[in-house]
Design a protein around this nucleic acid. Structure first.
Lengths: 256, 256
DNA sequence: CCAAAAGTGTTTAAAATACACCCATGC
DNA sequence: GCATGGGTGTATTTTAAACACTTTTGG
């Protein structure tokens, strides 16, 4: 199926397979070179950026929809995702944007479920930057990691959605372990600390951080030190998956 | 408009004013005689209980929809409500229930937006028990406060929704002040403590509780003691609305 | 005057914070 | 050999938890 006919079909008949008025938008965090990143898509023609999003199949749980979208944009499977907020301003409509898009494609259309109001559910995920192959969808030119501190202009309320996700991530840091998907299999304590500092956007005490993290038992110290590094070589750690998952549910019980 | 025609209109044309596939369900907590209560509706004919719920007008924010529903079921206005979770199991459909309902009313209908799948957003509110005049909707026999510890059987996943709301309420107790809507204008410290104990379902130390609550500055001590009470008369307090609202946003910073 | 509930303060334990020294490595 | 970052321990402050005595009131 070529591009135009795919688009036409989606705008004409999409409501037969998807729930109307409902969408999912994903805030996908990654961590690279000590910078927190978010995966964004750049719209064709308009050039503005947006969160990877999609719709809910008529027989699909929203969580599944979010995972499907994540898989399609990153190739990743089996990632922990969670809904964090519903955005339902009545003005949330992509009518003008979509109509302009269609004009650019060269399609005329008066009516479409895609011109109606959408309520969107925000989902967030923390993923391993190095494993992601960013993939654009048919509405987008590009799929790229963007620095959290240098975000481009974003479509609709997507910036608000992103900010909400980030704020919730910061809040949850004290109660839930993070890093399992954000860091490689084995990592050093300073690397883990950088991750926390990046998300919280402030410095943490090296010694206290280590003590508290160790106390949660989510880490396993490996008998291996990082090689070929200037200065004293740091030890490698990996996550103790069993305790990590326990902490995901039960909480960590510390304050950073 | 009589009952049958109102129902018929809602099932036939409701999708012209409401968003399809989307509903709001409200968990409305009250506190009376030291028992935490929830407002439930009893369905006509079937007799099973449900959360007060409703739909979102095509030009309405979900928060507004939730407030409108609250107002209609309780008469209350201007209550702090918050969404807490989206429930989206594909099996969430009231098709059979609604068809049975229509049969009982004496209406035949093959198709209706009301037979389709619904994704629902849970909202919770804490309200002043004594100010509520429970009002049933047209699908219900009765609207009643039910003890949280003796809940009747509930429709669909409403029990799960309620449990989720309660759990979130317990979690939030450490970070946000409560009581403003749950207690009368002026109240005593032991009354406030009972409220916390009821929600948390455990005893708290009288002295430590008082110290911590006082430290948050959300209370104003009044120059007035409760009269006509056995034993030593407790002092009255009221909430300092300014600090209360500040704490709602910024958090309380204590652990009970 | 006594039983029952409310008001208040102190002692103890735990947790968070601040801080200093030694160690290993590449240049 | 020295600058740099990593590893570890301890003293201090803050916060939470446990606990006891006094006060007031109705009966």
């Amino acid at each position: 199926m070529n591009f135009e006919s795919e688009i036409t079909k989606h705008f004409n008949d999409g409501h037969e397979i998807y729930l109307r008025h409902l969408s999912v938008d994903c805030v996908i965090f990654g961590f690279h070179q000590n910078i927190l990143k978010v995966l964004l898509l750049q719209a064709k023609y308009a050039g503005i950026w947006s969160l990877p999003g999609g719709f809910i199949l008529k027989d699909e749980h929203m969580d599944e929809a979010a995972k499907r979208i994540l898989k399609n944009r990153t190739g990743l499977d089996n990632i922990f995702m969670q809904q964090f907020h519903v955005f339902s301003q009545p003005s949330r409509s992509t009518k003008e944007i979509n109509q302009q898009f269609l004009r650019n494609v060269g399609i005329e259309m008066k009516e479409s479920w895609m011109f109606e109001r959408f309520v969107t559910v925000g989902y967030s995920a923390l993923v391993d930057f190095s494993e992601v192959k960013p993939m654009a969808d048919i509405y987008s030119n590009a799929s790229e990691w963007q620095d959290i501190n240098a975000l481009p202009e974003m479509m609709l309320d997507h910036r608000e959605i992103l900010d909400t996700a980030l704020q919730q991530l910061q809040t949850n840091l004290n109660y839930h372990p993070i890093g399992y998907n954000l860091l490689p299999e084995k990592f050093t304590m300073p690397e883990l600390q950088k991750l926390y500092e990046t998300i919280l956007n402030r410095k943490l005490d090296r010694r206290n951080f280590q003590r508290k993290i160790i106390a949660t038992k989510v880490l396993k110290k490996l008998n291996e030190i990082k090689k070929g590094v200037a200065h004293k070589a740091p030890n490698y750690y990996k996550f103790d998956l069993k305790n990590y998952k326990k902490a995901l549910k039960g909480g960590m019980g510390f304050e950073l």
